[in-house]
Design a protein around this nucleic acid. Structure first.
Lengths: 353, 353
DNA sequence: TTTCGCACTCTCAACGAGAGAGTGCTGAAT
DNA sequence: ATTCAGCACTCTCTCGTTGAGAGTGCGAAA
């Protein structure tokens, strides 16, 4: 059932016709008949001959016909063969590359950059763009800082992984002074900076014990604050970051525009969970990865394909980005766009280091 | 043209029937005929009599008939009269109040709270919820802090208005040490804490001149950093915060489910600009404000109504929240929900102070 | 003033016919 | 053995028709 088996059992000519059919279908969205194909493929074959070939292709599970008298349509398996073996990817013209580069101005912070990337992807492909930054397990605490707010509230600022800032507000039982908190943060930075967040969380209690014995007021304060801060962290849902854009582009796609399906699809986007799950699969892929139709395992994505690529900084994979559209999308255009965007996002982030 | 004119010129009975018709239509969504109305209004009138009344109401511009032989449907003007003069708002049952209260747990930070509120609104009404926090012009700088990142990058953290945290990363021309930046922030906090952001921006250059003469290295540094930080701020789009949720609920509404209209509506949500504009109108309203259909001035909202209420802390209006749905919505339910949500969000935010 | 009766209008669903597109198969030509 | 023309067949789509159903408006009666 592997693509190799298929393609090797099919003649050159069959594959050529198959490719022509898929391209034609991607262009028009209408089932393709033998007559059409005979006119526009360069080999001069009569519709009848082509019908025979198409019957073979249907037997192989590459084509399907909506009903006896419509043309043929590629199946998911057909698309798979197409993108794996037949597709010739265009190079992007330099104007488009420029356009992408311009959008990924590295002078922005992380989130802005991700958002930009996602909306650029959707703009340029006219499909839905998505950029994910997984919440990494190893978060190195770089800096902790406290700011006194009014009414026994303290703002905790954590800088993590040299780029990410987390803010949270905690309510304290008593009023702390600014200098007290300054000391506390100094102390915490001394012992915990560079350590992993999970490590920090695990060792706060131990440290608390130690400091209790030493009875230093400032350390005491520090540990109290830290405990509050990291307890909060613990309770927080471990939500990865996921940016969508251009979902509305999908409303134009004929295949998806049944109100019911569309609603389910949009709900899936909003929940984020399923999409995250899908993208997490793609994170370990070597480069471009394509999920076609049912392959994704989520039936809302039945008529959709997802083209993804991980993006990396310093050879380390940071996240995944991609495009969601109908199975009938212009792969030869979308694939290089996703590819180059991943690379450029990587290097834009690299400059930030 | 004011509602008073209308209602005074219409008999008690006409208004009663009108109210019954609107309620019926809101319930079913189908045009209401004379027969139906005769059966279910408690006054015993024949369909023929009711037809006469309905003809009058149509002359007043309160009703419309899609075609000769459908029933009648309220016009925007009709809805206006309905909500202004005829509607009797239900009290919420305590279970729902509980539910709202539970969702608005004050122990969260600002954004989380807004997001929660919005999604709670959409959940409970099955419509689209929206919460806005306008970027206020007067932003008091409370605290500024620098954290050294790798590669000549410095993280600037601004605490503004006692609750809001802004982070930005700036690229510097040389490497600064942590202690240098510590001094810088101390200095800046001394002279600028409590001042308005616009004031700060305006006076940085002046201060820079002064410090140049005094030639103190740390002050020098401080001003350089500040300039970078606030330049960035200036260039940033003055984007207010706006949280949507439950947009997908609108896909079920029959009136809106033409693919084309729906797409335009969703695009409007994504752009946020138009909705912001609308909500800004509502911010000066005294309490609940309702935009019906065309009244909003945005033709994408043709078949929609927007029910809003400002929410306030310490008697000061902070923002606006509301619900977007079809003109044919259960106002008697939605209005108290929006009302009470605004009040509870206000008090939840109050506890944070 | 209210109601009844009646003719009229409009929508909607069902039905059938005809056109169009495309297929599969057969048998002849290459 | 391929290839291909011819032909019968199938399925969809559109269009016009038709009848039922819902609701109206109006004039005349109560």
């Amino acid at each position: 059932m592997s693509p190799e088996t298929n393609s090797s059992q099919l003649s050159e000519r069959s594959l050529y016709l198959f490719k022509a059919l898929v391209e034609h279908f991607i262009q028009d969205g209408a089932p393709v008949g033998s007559r059409t194909l005979s006119k526009d493929s360069s080999l001069n074959l009569s519709p009848a001959t082509i019908r025979n070939v198409m019957a073979d292709l249907e037997d192989f599970g590459l084509l399907d016909s909506p009903h006896t008298s419509a043309g043929r349509v590629p199946t998911a398996k057909g698309y798979r063969l197409f993108v794996d073996s037949l597709l010739r990817v265009n190079d992007l013209n330099s104007i488009e590359v420029e356009k992408i580069a311009k959008e990924l101005d590295p002078g922005n912070d992380f989130k802005v950059l991700m958002q930009r990337t996602s909306s650029m992807l959707s703009d340029i492909t006219q499909l839905a763009g998505v950029v994910m930054l997984p919440r990494t397990e190893q978060s190195k605490l770089q800096h902790i800082e406290f700011v006194v707010l009014s009414g026994n509230r303290v703002l905790v600022i954590l800088v993590v992984n040299d780029r990410e800032v987390q803010n949270r507000i905690i309510n304290t039982s008593r009023t702390y002074s600014a200098s007290e908190l300054q000391e506390a943060s100094n102390y915490l930075n001394d012992i915990f900076a560079g350590k992993d967040l999970t490590y920090v969380r695990a060792n706060i209690l131990d440290e608390l014990e130690k400091t209790k014995e030493q009875l230093s007021q400032s350390m005491q304060t520090a540990m109290e604050m830290a405990q509050l801060a990291f307890d909060y962290e613990k309770s927080k849902v471990d939500s990865d970051e996921l940016f969508f854009s251009g979902e509305t582009n999908l409303m134009d796609i004929a295949e998806l525009c049944e109100a019911d399906k569309l609603k389910k699809l949009f709900n899936t986007f909003n929940q984020k969970r399923d999409i995250l799950h899908l993208l997490e699969q793609a994170i370990s892929a070597d480069g471009i990865q394509i999920f076609i139709g049912e392959e994704s395992g989520h039936d809302v994505l039945d008529n959709c394909s997802v083209v993804t690529s991980p993006y990396e900084v310093d050879g380390k994979i940071l996240g995944v980005l991609g495009v969601i559209g109908p199975t009938r999308m212009h792969y030869e255009r979308v694939i290089p766009i996703v590819d180059i965007t991943a690379k450029m996002l990587g290097s834009a982030l690299n400059l930030n280091n």
